[in-house]
Amino acid sequence: MNPVDLTRIPTADPLRAYRYRDGLYAADLVTAALVHLDFFTWLAANPSSVTGICTHFDFAERPVDVMMTLFVANGFVRRNGDVFHIADSGLEYLVADSPWSLAPYYRSLKDRPVTMDYLKVLKTGKPANWGAYDEGFDWHRSMEDESFARQFTAAMDCRGVLLGPAMAKALDLSRFSRLLDIGGGSGIYACSLVANHPGLSATVFDQASVEKIARTRVEELGFPDRVDVRAGDMLTQPLPEGYDLHLYSNVLHDWDVPEVRQLLAASFAALKPGGMLIIHDAIIGPEKDGPLPVAEYSAMLMHSTQGKCYSVNEYEALLSEAGFRGFTFQTTAADRGVMTAGKP
């Protein structure tokens, strides 16, 4: 394998390769709604809000929010305020009594494991087993196991070799000196930022099962003098102090609103005054009508984690509640983007 240059971004378009993986479970969510629930037929007769859908089907709010965002992004459903209505494409192709209904076409997929998982996730709000394995834990429990943590961290590291430099090049960090990369995994994002911003040093803060992996990877990337690693639990321990820059890169999407609220409040408490928070993630647009690839990726997160892809407006509301001000957002690479917020 050639050495990694974290100051360089590849020239070829990565979107097709990324989108096959990120959107893998979206078809199963459509199948569950269409074949098992006849959801679109019901919605055509009963325009409804997320709350109304949850009440009628006895579903949990988080998975319904993700499902409806996916359906709006596809044009199957349209949103009018808080109320969802069937759109023309949904009426013609997804409603049972339409002569063009595709329900029979999808019916052959109805017993796929991930399709069946979605029926449980919609009911309980709890994630399914990672990868829809018959035996095992959801992603959060699995990460406590060192062998799983190694495998998963390696998978996220290979993604970060592209996403990290793209994020780093989108940001002006010239006035900052110390970065805390919270839930930083292998350290690929911390290393990407210090590689592109010479005045920056960093600490990767993650759970004990990842610590050795991160130390090894930081050394391989050539930054042991500028990036250190510290083990800790971001949800049960105060965040380390003395940093003027915090990063959550592909972290918050793994958690539900209470945990995101907790993490943002912890960052606000620990961050130096005048410091900045960075959220690097796949982020839904302010109207929650796309982008479609992000809505599809959110379906995967809803299946296997406690989280989802949050919208720009959802992040701004949570950041404001924590005390942050001065928000920015820009897209980076492979359907990802970066938000910043300042601590006054």
Score class of each variant (00 low, 15 high):
121 V>R: 02
144 E>R: 13
108 S>Q: 14
180 L>D: 02
148 F>E: 05
106 Y>P: 04
102 L>M: 13
134 D>H: 11
112 R>V: 06
136 G>T: 01
98 S>T: 00
103 A>H: 08
132 A>C: 11
156 M>I: 04
165 P>E: 03
165 P>W: 02
176 F>R: 07
127 P>H: 02
151 Q>E: 14
178 R>Y: 11
118 Y>S: 08
98 S>D: 04
126 K>I: 05
138 D>P: 05
120 K>W: 10
94 L>V: 08
124 T>K: 06
99 P>R: 05
102 L>V: 12
144 E>V: 06
111 D>C: 07
96 A>D: 14
170 A>V: 03
176 F>S: 09
164 G>I: 00
148 F>M: 07
179 L>D: 00
153 T>F: 10
146 E>D: 12
142 S>T: 04
180 L>A: 05
158 C>H: 10
114 V>F: 07
138 D>H: 13
173 L>E: 01
96 A>E: 12
159 R>Y: 13
119 L>K: 01
156 M>E: 00
152 F>G: 02
128 A>Y: 02
152 F>C: 08
117 D>F: 05
149 A>L: 03
165 P>L: 02
128 A>G: 08
176 F>L: 11
164 G>D: 03
162 L>F: 09
112 R>C: 04
102 L>Q: 11
155 A>M: 13
116 M>A: 14
183 G>S: 09
145 D>R: 15
92 E>W: 11
142 S>M: 15
145 D>V: 13
141 R>V: 11
135 E>Y: 09
170 A>N: 01
129 N>M: 08
152 F>N: 10
101 S>V: 01
102 L>P: 00
151 Q>L: 15
102 L>A: 12
167 M>R: 06
122 L>C: 08
157 D>L: 12
119 L>G: 08
109 L>N: 09
101 S>Y: 05
182 I>S: 06
183 G>Y: 12
184 G>I: 08
150 R>T: 11
148 F>N: 03
150 R>W: 10
123 K>W: 07
184 G>S: 08
98 S>H: 07
152 F>Q: 12
143 M>D: 00
155 A>P: 00
165 P>I: 01
120 K>V: 09
155 A>S: 15
178 R>A: 13
125 G>F: 04
128 A>Q: 03
115 T>D: 02
122 L>Q: 06
144 E>H: 14
165 P>G: 01
145 D>C: 10
132 A>M: 05
154 A>Q: 15
172 D>Y: 02
182 I>A: 07
177 S>Y: 05
153 T>A: 12
165 P>D: 05
102 L>K: 11
95 V>R: 03
120 K>E: 11
165 P>H: 01
111 D>M: 06
116 M>D: 07
118 Y>E: 07
168 A>L: 07
112 R>W: 02
164 G>A: 08
94 L>D: 01
127 P>A: 01
173 L>H: 03
183 G>D: 06
114 V>I: 14
141 R>F: 09
122 L>K: 05
185 G>D: 00
133 Y>I: 09
110 K>P: 00
175 R>S: 15
119 L>S: 07
151 Q>V: 13
149 A>N: 08
160 G>W: 00
148 F>R: 03
139 W>P: 09
136 G>F: 05
